[in-house]
């Protein structure tokens, strides 16, 4: 403000031509009692930045004892002698926020929290609420006891057959070597066979969809019709209750091609089928 006010010397006009000079700070008083301060500065990239700040001034009036007010004017002494007013950083700092809420039954709450904190409960207590979960059908039993173990078996048997084939190959490979034992990955074609096996296993898994929230009244051929429009379906498995023969609410659909499976997954997920909305996702590996 002041430079423009008392600029009498014409030589100072030079400043106006200098583009690097910042415009003076502006202060605008708003109607609601706040002030808007507009100032300019250069940032780190040497660019001109306009800073607009709205400032609300609140006057907090506090009544203190005159003795206390008088004491506030005291000079510092001792080790603090000559130090500027205000807390110094080497003696005063602000701690982290503490949430302190007194409560009536604090003791009981604290005890509970301590228990939840763990360590104390035995393994048995920890597992008390845990449920057994089948890896095949997510039912409440061990995987080995799964009623669908047999029905699901074809998929696993298919993969299980591969090692048998490999074993025959290996038998030949063994004879060729002079030493008694050759580790599988060193054997001729062994690595390839293993890879093939893994590949086949994975391919099968990757093209299988897990469909959940299937209606109890669903039929396997209905599902086949539904999914076949996206590509060739190699297998449809609808889990059924052994006694009632009703569908258990989930199914597996295997495609010949993963691309088709992905498409089906995208399209059918959220599709309404027999009063329920299907949920489709890629089947997770059972192992």
């Amino acid at each position: 403000m002041s430079p423009t006010g008392n600029r009498a010397d014409w030589a100072d006009d030079e400043d106006f031509d200098d583009p690097s000079v910042l415009p003076p700070q502006e202060v605008i008083t708003n109607k609601d009692g706040t002030k808007t301060v507009i100032s300019y500065r250069y940032n780190d990239d040497n660019k001109k930045v306009k800073v607009t700040r709205r400032i609300k001034t609140t006057v907090v009036r506090e009544h203190v004892n005159p003795q206390v007010a008088e004491r506030r004017k005291w000079e510092k002494f001792g080790l603090e002698k000559g130090h500027a007013a205000g807390p110094s950083f080497d003696t005063t700092s602000v701690g982290e926020n503490i949430i302190f809420r007194p409560s009536v039954n604090w003791k009981a709450n604290a005890k509970e929290a301590e228990k939840e904190g763990g360590e104390k409960g035995s393994m048995k207590d920890q597992l008390k609420d845990k449920k057994v979960k089948c890896r095949i059908c997510s039912g409440e039993h061990f995987t080995a006891r799964c009623p669908f173990k047999d029905t699901m078996a074809p998929v696993e048997e298919g993969t299980a057959a591969a090692p048998g084939v490999e074993a025959e190959e290996d038998a030949g490979g063994l004879g060729a070597g002079k030493s008694s034992y050759v580790p599988p990955h060193m054997r001729k074609g062994g690595a390839g066979g293993g890879e093939k096996m893994g590949g086949r296993f994975e391919k099968d898994d990757l093209a299988t969809l897990r469909v959940t929230n299937v209606s109890e009244l669903a039929e396997e051929n209905e599902l086949r019709d539904l999914f076949e429009r996206f590509g060739r379906v190699t297998r449809v498995f609808l889990a059924r209750d052994r006694e009632t023969q009703r569908a258990k609410g989930f199914a597996f659909i295997s495609y010949a091609d993963r691309g088709d499976a992905a498409l089906a997954c995208e399209k059918v997920d959220g599709f309404g089928y027999r009063h329920l909305i299907l949920r489709v996702e890629f089947a997770k590996r059972t192992t």
């Binding site: 206390v68 510092k76 002494f77 001792g78 603090e80 002698k81 007013a85 807390p87 110094s88 005063t92």
Partner: peptide
């Protein structure tokens, strides 16, 4: 008695006076 000052003593022979409102040290009594 007014609560504006806090005095602390410790085993290190120093007596400190603090403003209780902001934690500023007023001085030490050596």
């Amino acid at each position: 008695s007014d609560g504006d000052l806090l005095f602390s003593v410790s085993k290190d022979k120093i007596v400190c006076a603090w403003w209780s409102a902001n934690g500023e040290r007023l001085g030490t009594y050596n």
